[in-house]
Each structure stands twice: as structure tokens, then as C-alpha cells.
């Protein structure tokens, strides 16, 4: 491995786990998610010269992944799974947080995307706006609707019963 490949491994390959987690939630198809991440990383490698050291590598990689995902969707290689037909294919059999995983699965695609990017991956609204090519206000409204939908799925009344209490109760049962 030469020095440039070493740098790429540190900057980009180290994000394979995060990219895979996100890709699974985008595709609901584990093999397709792996292919998507592999293609993302190869595209990143081919444009690594354009990446400026010190800039946000994660945002750069997630943007490539989203572009690749939507590009494949346009070419018919990947399809967005219609609401109601989703199973837990993308959840890797997670059984410790079934309520949350299930609720996330049932969110509309655009809401699930901002919730994953913002809450799980820690991107700012500005970064999500750049990544998705939508105004910040749209990011915030999608995030708000996603939260509301999660609460509805989980049967949470805002500020009367917290999700934490609900999960604790579930564990005790």
C-alpha cells in the first residue's frame, strides 16, 4: 500500500461501517447496501485528488453515497421500497431495540434519511442541506415530521411519556 492509499484508508475506509449502516437503511437490501458502499468507496478513491485534507470527509463520503444511490435509482438498479412493504431486511436481525428499529423502518424514505443523517450520523442541518440538495428549512421540517412519526409509531404522547420510559417498561415486561 503506497502513502496515498494509506491516507485514503485512514480518511475513507475507516467510515465503511457508518456508510454500511446508513446504506442498509436506504436500500433495505443487505447485498445491495454492500454494493452501494463498495461503489461509494471506489468513487471516492477515484476522486480522492479533489478531496481537500482537513475538510469534512464524512460529509464528502455520504454525499457520494447518496448521489450513487439516487443515480442507481434513476437507472433502475435500486428501487425505493414502498411504505408498507418493508420488512426488517435492513436491520441485520437486531432484536435489542425492536420497537425503534421497526418504527424507523416504517418512516417515509425522506424522513428516515434525515433522521439517520442528523441523529445517528451527527450531521448538521447545513451539512444535510448540502448533501441532499434541499433547503435547510426542508431538512428541519422533514426532521420534525420524522420525530412526530416515530412518536406515533411508538405510541408516545409528547412530554407525557418519554421513549426512554417506554423502552424501560418494555424491558421489564
Amino acid at each position: 500500500m503506497n502513502s496515498r492509499e494509506q491516507e485514503f484508508a485512514e480518511v475513507a475506509l475507516s467510515q465503511a461501517g457508518s456508510l454500511l449502516r446508513f446504506a442498509r437503511r436506504l436500500t433495505f437490501d443487505p447485498p445491495a447496501a454492500e454494493d452501494l458502499v463498495q461503489e461509494t468507496l471506489l468513487r471516492a478513491w477515484r476522486s480522492f485528488d479533489q478531496f481537500r485534507g482537513g475538510s469534512n470527509a464524512r460529509a464528502w463520503l455520504f454525499r457520494i453515497l447518496l448521489n450513487e444511490f439516487y443515480g442507481q435509482g434513476r437507472k433502475g438498479r435500486l428501487t425505493l421500497v414502498p411504505l408498507g412493504e418493508m420488512d426488517r431486511a435492513g436491520s441485520s436481525g437486531n432484536d435489542q431495540k425492536p420497537e425503534i428499529a421497526e418504527a424507523l423502518t416504517k418512516l417515509p424514505h425522506d424522513q428516515r434519511t434525515v433522521l439517520m443523517l442528523g441523529v445517528v450520523e451527527g450531521f448538521t442541518c447545513r451539512e444535510m442541506s448540502d448533501m441532499l440538495g434541499i433547503p435547510m428549512g426542508t431538512v428541519m421540517s422533514r426532521m420534525s415530521r420524522a420525530r412526530q412519526a416515530m412518536r406515533t409509531q411508538l405510541g408516545i404522547v409528547p412530554r407525557a411519556t418519554t421513549l426512554g420510559q417506554k423502552v424501560l417498561s418494555h424491558r421489564e415486561n
Binding site: 454500511l20 449502516r21 442498509r24 458502499v37 463498495q38 424507523l104 433522521l115 412518536r151
Partner: peptide
């Protein structure tokens, strides 16, 4: 904040499960 923490925790469980796959992906890409 509590909801966010739980969501991150739920996804972190999946990350551990996906770790092997991620390492395999890294090798494939290299």
C-alpha cells in the same frame, strides 16, 4: 435528547453486527 440517544444506541447495536462486513468491504475495496 432521550429519543436521539436511544436511536443511536439501537443503531450502534447494528454497527457491531456489521463490523465484520465493514472490514470485509474495506479489504474488497483495497
Amino acid at each position: 435528547e432521550a429519543e436521539d440517544a436511544l436511536l443511536r444506541e439501537a443503531m450502534a447495536v447494528e454497527s457491531a453486527r456489521d463490523l465484520m462486513t465493514a472490514r470485509d468491504l474495506e479489504r474488497r475495496v483495497m
